[in-house]
């Protein structure tokens, strides 16, 4: 990995939790992500909004360091990606369930916790806490394959949180999760933000996007608009997010 020493800062000189500059990814002839810049400050809940195939997951996978960009630079907490220092602080919930179906929920969580060298007592406590959060305490000794789709995603979320990451990437964390728990999970995400955890969440649901401190609207591998919800509304002269997005899309089509 090429290493450049310069750390990326935002305009106020504050160190960024997530910084991407000119990130490009092509799959064959198709460009999935074409030159994206992204800046997320520490403790912010940042929403990446966009339709299916917009390049959200590809971007997130590059930010996590599991996919190498064809061009551009990525830093997490001022460190280059991928690096061991970043990996210690980073949590990632991929879109697929990404758990061992033949192991129990608790075994899965313990396995991933132990990858971070956490002490056993701390792991036990943390696993209990997370199972409570995703409401799977009564299913802790069930094999993951035996759980319903929504429960599997909740278990997957718990596995991503097990080491208390400082930067958390959640790829459609609430897909298949019922409405009641979805609200509870978002409350939890926002509380993580208050604990100085930086979150980047992808979604295609507007009501989830509205709860983010900042939003990026991704379409066709490009970041079409970026800002807080009020900024986006004001920029598009719209009264709600849906209208704002339609306006942004229409403007885009008009200019291209």
């Amino acid at each position: 990995m090429r290493s450049t020493s310069a750390t990326l800062f935002d305009s106020e000189g504050e160190e960024l939790a997530i910084a991407a500059r000119g990130v490009v990814k092509r799959f064959g002839s198709r460009t999935a992500v074409s030159g994206i810049d992204l800046s997320v400050s520490p403790g912010m809940v940042y929403g990446l909004l966009g339709p299916n195939g917009a390049g959200k997951s590809t971007l997130v996978r590059m930010l996590c360091g599991v996919l190498r960009p064809d061009a551009g630079r990525i830093q997490i907490l001022g460190w280059h990606v991928p690096s061991l220092r970043v990996q210690l602080q980073l949590g990632y919930m991929p879109q697929e369930v990404a758990l061992y179906g033949d192991l129990t929920v608790a075994q899965n969580l313990r396995m991933f916790a132990r990858l971070y060298d956490l002490p056993r007592a701390q792991i036990r406590e943390r696993v209990g806490e997370l199972l409570e959060l995703v409401r799977l305490s009564d299913r802790r000794d069930d094999r993951v394959a035996a759980l319903s789709g929504g429960m599997q995603r909740r278990a997957s979320l718990a596995a991503s949180l097990v080491h208390r990451p400082r930067v958390l990437f959640l790829d459609e964390p609430t897909a298949g999760v019922d409405l009641q728990l979805r609200t509870a999970l978002w409350d939890y995400f926002l509380s993580l933000g208050e604990q100085e955890v930086t979150l980047l969440v992808t979604t295609h649901l507007l009501e989830e996007a509205e709860r983010c401190a900042r939003l990026g609207f991704l379409q066709g591998g490009r970041l079409l608009a970026e800002g807080t919800v009020p900024e986006l509304l004001e920029g598009a002269h719209a009264s709600d997010l849906e209208a704002a997005l339609s306006t942004i899309l229409a403007e885009r089509e008009a200019t291209s």
Partner: peptide, 8 residues
């Protein structure tokens, strides 16, 4: 992927 995101 989950393992490779961890410091492994």
């Amino acid at each position: 992927t989950r393992m490779l995101v961890a410091p492994v």
